[in-house]
Amino acid sequence: MENAGVLMTCPMSSYLEAQLQKRFKLFRFWDAPSEPDFLKHNTGSIRAVVGNASCGADSCLIDSLPNLEIVSTYSVGFDKIDLAKCRERGIRVTNTPDVLTDEVADTAIALVLATLRRICVADRFVRSGLWRNGDFELATKFSGKSVGILGLGRIGTAIAKRAEAFGCRISYTARLKKPNNNYKYCSSVVDLAANCQILVVACSLTEETRHIINRQVIDALGPNGILINIGRGSHVDEPELVSALLEGRLGGAGLDVFESEPGVPEQFLGLKNVVLLPHVGSDTVETCRAMADLVIANLEAHFLNKPLLTPVV
């Protein structure tokens, strides 16, 4: 197993990198002065790719690796992996679900509180010395609000449980109605947005969910509504979100993800009713180590011909 070549697509975790180095023949894609030259000289040695939410394995990379057997992503999302190409080639794919559920759900609630209670603006108010000139303006409460969740999977369910603790009424939409809960099911995201004050995006990114938060959804949420996105940036039509915030057609937004990371629409930067995070929803010491361990465990299982722990394909 120590001779198996593993390509790490970009820097992501020093712990993961060290563990891969111990167990496999590790190739670091970002160290290569020329990607074509690197692939020309090493393509036959690489049997596994380790990517993440921003740098996975597209069709070009997969096509360039004739001996590729498995792609193990250091993320729960796998939209940066060409799954169709992997299925065609018989390449296995794994991700890291469950271990980051609590952290991402916590981040969603933190974004709700920061946006409604204007935590970041209040912090700047104190630091700038403005408090000496008068009190900070009133914010909006979270407790008792109606919360709509787009995608009631592991993370969506964890968000719903946390919001329930604040006395919130929960509604959701998903591909299928979920059994064994008391939440209101809405048949479409527009219906969901029209029936909640806070809309949380927590679904997987697919072609069907790309730009699912469009002008119609935003207008259904309305001028007092809040959008929270801890899914993927491409769930949201960003120009429509920007215009809605600038025109007052939406009350505010809390965003951990963006369509062209690390690029962020410049218009967001001057808005006081938007909270911006650098895609850190799962980034705690504990979770990043657990994610790395799961990547390693999947690779070891594959090379030992054992069942994969968290297979996607």
Rank of each mutant, 00 (worst) to 15 (best):
P179V: 02
E164W: 01
C186V: 03
E238A: 14
G153C: 12
N229M: 10
G254H: 02
D191E: 15
G233M: 08
V189L: 13
G151H: 00
V190E: 13
P223Q: 12
A194C: 09
R215Y: 11
I149Q: 01
R169C: 12
A165P: 05
Q197W: 00
T157Y: 09
V200Y: 01
S243P: 03
T206Q: 10
G151V: 03
Y172P: 05
P179W: 03
D256N: 10
K161R: 15
L192N: 04
V217K: 02
I170M: 08
G254S: 06
A174L: 07
A202R: 01
D256Y: 01
V217I: 12
P262R: 04
I170F: 06
L245V: 11
A202P: 04
L245W: 03
A163T: 07
P239K: 07
G252E: 02
P179T: 04
P239L: 09
Q216H: 13
V217M: 08
G151C: 10
R154W: 02
L250C: 08
S243A: 13
R232Y: 09
S204N: 15
G153L: 08
L255G: 01
S204Q: 14
V242N: 09
S260R: 13
R162C: 09
G248H: 05
N229E: 10
V217H: 04
I213T: 07
L150C: 15
P262D: 11
I155G: 02
R249T: 06
R210L: 14
I213W: 01
G225R: 04
C196A: 11
L250R: 02
V200Q: 00
S260Y: 14
N182I: 09
V236F: 01
V189I: 15
